[in-house]
């Protein structure tokens, strides 16, 4: 059996005012889609920042491709508020993460990705001129430009309207599917978790820990899964479980 892409063993974290995360053990394989679902304050964002190498590991072990994570290598993080550079054009926002490659290659790769994500006509626009959904597409293109096997998504679709949200979810599945990349998605939305996850981890707050792991017994993924007859029953069951988790917390 091949080694997992991401491996957490007894991982904990403390910001200095009490533990935020405790005893997290989980593995993510190559190309796998893992969703972390939990109420506010259960340390989901801290967990992603640990996986991205933005925070030091205080307790336990976290390995990405067999090594402790280093910021900017191994995983690309997509944020809820996109964090685009307003003073750089759409194309330049993607090119920036390709630093070190020849200019022509950077341009070509950025244009190709933006074309794939439906922003081919907006290359020279400023991010401020894009809609919320287009900004998230640009953020996704920037993450995909990083040649890494894992995407980390911190509630990236929370600020989008329902239609744009579904479109972006499908885009995420399509783009990661094409290149066989794994993703870890943190969300508040039970619907999103159920539609996108191969596995769903339910987290409990104070301190954040994994309470349960759910593997949706539904066919397909994304929109296809949403159309399954049992989807809404499974949604109600998962919502009940989440309520139970919140109560126990």
């Amino acid at each position: 059996m091949s080694a997992p892409l991401l491996s957490l063993r007894g991982l904990g974290h403390d910001h200095g005012d009490g533990p935020v995360l405790t005893d997290l053990t989980v593995e993510v394989g190559a190309g796998e889609r893992l969703v972390i679902l939990g109420p506010s304050g259960c340390g989901k964002t801290t967990l992603l920042r640990l996986m991205a190498g933005l925070l030091p590991i205080c307790e336990g072990q976290l390995l990405l491709d067999g090594r402790p994570p280093v910021a900017g290598r191994g995983a690309a993080l997509i944020f809820q508020n996109t964090r685009l550079l307003p003073w750089r054009r759409v194309r330049e926002n993607v090119e920036l993460v390709l630093a070190g490659r020849p200019k022509a290659e950077r341009r070509e790769r950025a244009a190709d990705l933006l074309q794939r994500l439906g922003l081919g006509a907006r290359l020279e626009d400023w991010p401020g001129a894009l809609s919320g959904g287009q900004k998230q597409r640009l953020a996704l293109a920037r993450a995909l430009a990083m040649d890494v096997p894992l995407l980390l998504l911190d509630e990236p679709f929370a600020n989008l309207d329902p239609l744009a949200r579904e479109q972006m979810q499908e885009e995420l599945l399509r783009q990661t599917g094409v290149e066989g990349r794994a993703f870890v998605l943190v969300t508040h939305s039970v619907d999103e978790a159920l539609a996108l996850g191969d596995r769903i981890l339910l987290m409990q707050p104070r301190p954040g820990r994994i309470l349960r792991e759910v593997t949706p017994d539904l066919p397909g993924i994304g929109m296809e899964r949403r159309r399954a007859p049992r989807f809404y029953t499974a949604l109600a069951e998962l919502s009940d479980e989440l309520r139970e988790v919140a109560r126990e917390g």
Binding site: G72, R83, L85, L96, A99
Partner: peptide
């Protein structure tokens, strides 16, 4: 600080962050 963190998470070095994030 969120833009600085974005720069770090995308592997931008200190000089790249200075040029493309801090100075503007």
């Amino acid at each position: 600080p969120e833009l600085i963190e974005m720069g770090r998470s995308y592997g931008m070095g200190a000089l790249t962050r200075l040029r493309h994030i801090v100075l503007p």
